[in-house]
Nucleic acid binder design. Structure first.
Lengths: 468, 468
DNA sequence: ACAGTTTCCCGTAAATGC
DNA sequence: TGCATTTACGGGAAACTG
């Protein structure tokens, strides 16, 4: 039997998006002596919520009662799986709306309740249980924030239903937190963070306290307040990197070729004594979801460092990152185009490292190993009553690699990433507008054309002027 | 007051997508003597439809009654505008479902009815009118088919409500049809089709009959049956080109630089006596939504023609087409990279033609002149009764051009389109796997690297082998 | 198995609300 | 006004359905 739908956001349980279907399952943990009648289960959203606890109220739009069945893989247990459940916000609550102005939507915790009632030997028994705290979002853009909440909650408390958790969230030790962060990378990208990467992240988040692994990180510092000088929080930044890896850098990440979180100072220290052309890969610190490479050059005695403008998902979907590294060229005034990337830090010849990755599709497969011990935190059963347990089901949907061999009469064409390095003197004013039609093929063709190319200001302004 | 929503598919009236909001307006054309009470209008979908006429039934999900108001720009008329209307399919019709197996969904015509009733001087008057035939779709992928139907209907009949039209659709003369096609380009792209382009399209659609402008084109040939040897119909092909122009080629199209519909034979005839490096732009005939350039070369006496693999929307969103033309390079064995494109046919120096377009953003503005006389066909009022007229409202939402000037410490980077031309002898087996780390910068660097690049089969298979 | 059609839902952009 | 949150819906893909 195939699954008719995928629940909300695979691999991120306990987050429900309004208007999107989700699935949940309840199982009776004891065998009942008499089950020759139907046991009906009803699921309710935010049942018995203390008034004013939440600023938004939701209800289950779809059918919320179902009869229990004996499970397929018959251990004799009764269970019921609700599919196609959907949440909708109650609008226009007459009374109190938005008591908790302090909490953001992704900090507001909710829960699903399950109720059943049966009679055995003249005795009526009420069963009830509920889920771990849930976060409700209305747009995928809130997913990172929601996931931060789910992680923080389950990392720091064993309480099954402390919906006021984010009223006064506890701190996490860097010890605990770094383990969760590494787990995130191993779950979603296939390879966790190594010691150096964790140290670098710790320095970014904690500054001088990083050496002390008992240092307590506040919830706010982790996910709410912006990194000084930036417009996003630590977690938003890290999550954007996770997404970039998931979609465009899986193979490179899993080969451990991305140093990732080096500061610019550390970067120079590492590279300065290396062979010219040695480069390392790191994520952009100033923009969300970008990756760049920095390489070292020796300029008659001086050591010089260069970094490309970070590549973001848009650029990477036009050209895979490994191909960018292979094909990248720099044009310096009057010098032939050259690829400055020779050795991946510390000293791996570029093609030795990246050769096997060239022209390989984004390679969706081979990723995301499904389980890790910390994941149990998020999937542990919730034994509210003695009789019922609760599971949020999720699916993983791995597509397969497909490789195409184009066969047609056209000349195939690729894209090449290229930079122009200008010397400080802005001499040689580009003679861009002169047509000189039958250009003589020569080794400086590309150079000449690109001197025009880079004069964005001039060209664009002209375009604007002629357009308006 | 700002518009709270955009109706279904701007600029394509008479097509409604289920689950997406649309807007409609009714106006009373006569002034009533006594309007000191409220005149309520009700709108119904497919009212009084002969049973079995349609295979799908829909209803208006949202509020469908509203009271008439005096129009803003007070000519004293009463009118009512229904907003946020939404259509949903009736599921599980007990009786007949799908009598008309012959018609596709986009050929099935529906209509909106409007009813009002008022009493004047003791006399009760019923008002009723309805819309022009509508096409209902469930996904944007059906939009081209739906639009073909709307065009064909309004081109070929003046009947206000012949819902059986596509049971036996009339033919169109090439005269009529070509005018509509040109109008499509002028409406959606800003420039219509010139005589040559229409002739070329006529030849593609009609073959030898093209010379006769009275030749009758069948509905099936226009939009239903596939072009021989292809997997899409004539209209699907042409519409994919319209979409490509709208999103990525506006400026180039509006400068009239795209010849577009030349056959490969004609292409050779045109180019063969031209200066080497003369090129022309045409759309792919084998794939939907692709554009390519063909250039002529002289190879000691022989005339040679080359075409690049067509660029599709994905590639074009990574790099604007004008920039592709400027930067395109070909690497032939052992020869320095060169841009083979010198003159736009017949003899315009490349940079003279495309210079002003380089680095200009996809330029959404400057497009789509809003009206054309043929458009009136689609917006003519529908005088079913004497008292009411009907309008489908639509908005245009032109974004503005924005040009960014990047200012940051990174080296900017661009993409360059490049092809490798192999001589027939498959000599020089690429020594791709040998690292040779500190590559000597030299004028054949690029060549050497690209010899590796093109061996897709080898590299990919290796990647697969090592991956599995 | 298959093609025509619909549903699903991410991700961007716009609208809304506070 | 600005920011937080929701709504809208195009577009690709999966699911459905005769």
């Amino acid at each position: 039997e195939k699954q008719p739908c995928m629940p909300t956001h695979p691999q991120k349980p306990l987050i429900i998006k309004t208007g999107v279907q989700f699935t949940t399952k309840v199982r009776l943990l004891v065998k009942l002596p008499e089950v020759d009648y139907q046991l009906k289960v009803k699921t309710t959203f935010d049942k018995d919520l203390p008034p004013g606890r939440v600023s938004r109220q939701f209800f289950i739009l779809t059918n919320n009662t179902k009869v229990m069945d004996i499970e397929d893989y018959s251990n004799g247990c009764l269970s019921v799986e609700f599919r196609h459940l959907q949440l909708k916000e109650k609008k226009y609550i007459n009374g109190t709306k938005g008591l908790e102005g302090l909490l953001s939507v992704t900090e507001e915790l909710h829960s699903l309740s399950f109720e059943a009632c049966f009679t055995v030997q003249g005795l009526t028994i009420d069963l009830e249980t509920c889920s771990l705290p849930l976060v409700v979002i209305s747009n995928v853009s809130q997913l990172p924030g929601g996931w931060a909440s789910v992680m923080w909650y389950n990392l720091l408390t064993d309480e099954p239903r402390n919906l006021a958790f984010f009223g006064n969230p506890p701190r996490a030790s860097w010890n605990q937190l770094s383990e969760v962060l590494s787990w995130q990378f191993s779950t979603f990208a296939g390879r966790g963070l190594n010691k150096e990467q964790l140290t670098m992240l710790g320095e970014k988040l904690l500054g001088q306290h990083a050496s002390c692994s008992d240092y307590q990180v506040s919830w706010s510092k982790f996910s709410k307040e912006n990194i000084p000088g930036k417009t996003f929080s630590f977690w938003m930044w890290l999550d954007s990197i996770l997404e970039l890896i998931k979609k465009h850098l899986l193979a490179v990440w899993n080969e451990n070729y991305i140093m990732g979180f080096v500061s610019k100072e550390m970067e120079r220290t590492l590279l300065k004594d290396r062979e010219p052309g040695t480069f390392l890969l790191r994520f952009s610190e100033s923009h969300l979801g970008g990756i760049t490479f920095t390489w070292v050059e020796h300029d008659n005695g001086d050591v010089k460092f260069n970094s490309v403008e970070p590549y973001t998902k848009n650029r990477l979907s036009a050209l895979p990152f490994a191909d960018i590294i292979r094909d990248y060229k720099v044009i310096s005034d009057g010098v032939v185009p050259e690829n400055p990337l020779k050795f991946l830090y510390p000293d791996i010849p570029k093609d030795e490292a990246f050769g096997p990755l060239y022209n390989s599709q984004p390679s969706k497969g081979k990723s995301a190993k499904p389980f890790h011990h910390l994941e149990l935190i998020l999937f542990r059963a919730c034994f509210e009553s003695l009789l019922v347990d609760w599971i949020v089901r999720y699916n993983t949907n791995l597509s397969h690699i497909s490789v195409k061999f184009p066969v047609h009469p056209y000349i195939p064409s690729t894209l090449i990433p290229i930079s122009e390095l200008r010397s400080n003197s802005s001499a040689t004013p580009p003679s861009c507008q002169s047509p000189e039609p039958p250009m003589t093929p020569g080794e400086f063709d590309m150079l000449n054309e690109h001197l025009c190319l880079i004069d964005i200001d001039t060209v664009s302004l002209q375009a604007l002027a002629s357009g308006g």
